[in-house]
Design a protein around this nucleic acid. Structure first.
Lengths: 225, 225
DNA sequence: CGATCACTTGACACCTATCAAAGACCGTGG
DNA sequence: CCACGGTCTTTGATAGGTGTCAAGTGATCG
């Protein structure tokens, strides 16, 4: 593994506070691999053998049941995923597939758990990470239960706008088909939802979104943190 | 606080491994209180001043937005709630209200965070707890995105059946109005969903549910863990 | 016994999914 | 460079799921 990648991983919140000794020990057992697009890295229900770290590319976390499937999240560099399953030594709750060519590090779960027992700063960092993940999922759940698909889209766009600097125009960071699934709707419904946002000043051109801040009527979607 | 309660709390997974010194220190700052039914303990958006422990009764965790509201979970003794917000020192993501007369312990969040920094066994226990909570929410999210309301009800009933010993009959542990909200549907829809399960051998009498194991057709709901 | 509340039932409207087909986009290979 | 095939996206028509409103039933409780 190149030094630059090694350092990038070291700087992740989850690893930055642990001792050098434990970190190098953890990385000694690491596999690093380049995957092409559309490779299934993880299958729901299987034992969680590795903690994954994505260095480049992007990964879709999804789940299937009874012929339906849904994306739960998209992971981007540099971050870990499947942490909870690793810690609990429990089966994966979701599957993962590369969306594009991706470079991924695999840390054997038993190594992670062993260091977790030894290094209490690592344990504390994991707490912070998990609490954050937990809160993110709760927000998504509220989104699903309290909002219509049009409202979810509106809020997603407002969040993306803020994240990309707050300008009037920005790019979607994945294709609409996937966005629809992440937001819990069909591609057809997403397409119509975009049209439904036109009265609020939203125009779409491919993956380019523009939001002209028109008057927003009272019943309109409002952002929540 | 009675010794028996003190011991019950001590035996919670989250507290059982920490040192006596830290536990007593934590409990020294604890408030204990009996609340009547329908009291709002926590309001979404406010700073998380206390980690809560429910000793008796039951508490509804819910969220409101734009005139709609939804129950995210119901908490029962003996367990903690609002742990993630406490750890991250972040605003509550949900509100909480007592469903009945309830006895609740309040641990100042700053105390919890202080001990979290001192006691690494406590930190490790919190990891396990949070990982479990995280996985529970992910399961709920999959439920919401991959299943219809009828399927969610069917799976809920099967889970409850298993939990109550696997017998053909069991009792719902909260009223249908609340169950509907937890499952992400309206009371009217729940009522119809129960009827829709009759062909599968489900009969309802108040809060008493019977499941006669009839032949289950292939398209029918299947349990997932 | 009357009032209240939860639950049920019916009618209806809306949101959303499904199916089908046409258009837009993109990579590949000639 | 262009033609091609495939995929994504859009659009329309339709059906099904779900929420809303309203009214009625049943139970509980003072």
């Amino acid at each position: 593994m190149p030094d630059s990648e090694y350092r990038d991983i070291r700087q992740l919140n989850i690893f930055s506070q642990m001792t050098d000794e434990h970190f190098t020990s953890l990385m000694r057992g690491a596999y690093i691999q380049n995957f092409p697009a559309q490779i299934e890295l993880i299958t729901e229900g299987e034992p969680s053998d590795f903690l994954h770290i994505i260095l480049s590319g992007s990964v879709d976390l999804f789940s299937c049941w009874n012929g339906r499937d849904s994306s739960l999240a998209v992971v981007r560099p540099i971050s870990t995923f499947i942490l909870a399953a690793t810690i609990r030594d429990a089966p994966y709750l979701m599957s993962a597939r590369t969306l594009e060519k991706s470079r991924i590090v695999l840390l054997p779960s038993q190594d992670v758990r062993a260091i977790f027992e030894l290094d209490s700063d690592f344990a504390r960092a994991i707490v912070t990470e998990l609490a954050q993940c937990y809160r993110a999922v709760i927000k998504t759940q509220k989104d699903l239960k309290l909002r219509t698909s049009l409202e979810r889209l509106a809020n997603y766009l407002l969040r993306m706008q803020k994240r990309s600097g707050g300008g009037a125009t920005f790019e979607l960071d994945f294709e609409k088909r996937l966005l629809a699934s992440v937001l819990g709707m069909t591609p057809e419904n997403l397409s119509r939802a975009f049209k439904g946002l036109q009265p609020y000043g939203v125009t779409v051109n491919g993956t380019l979104i523009s939001i002209h801040n028109q008057a927003i009527s009272s019943g309109s979607p409002n952002p929540i943190p």
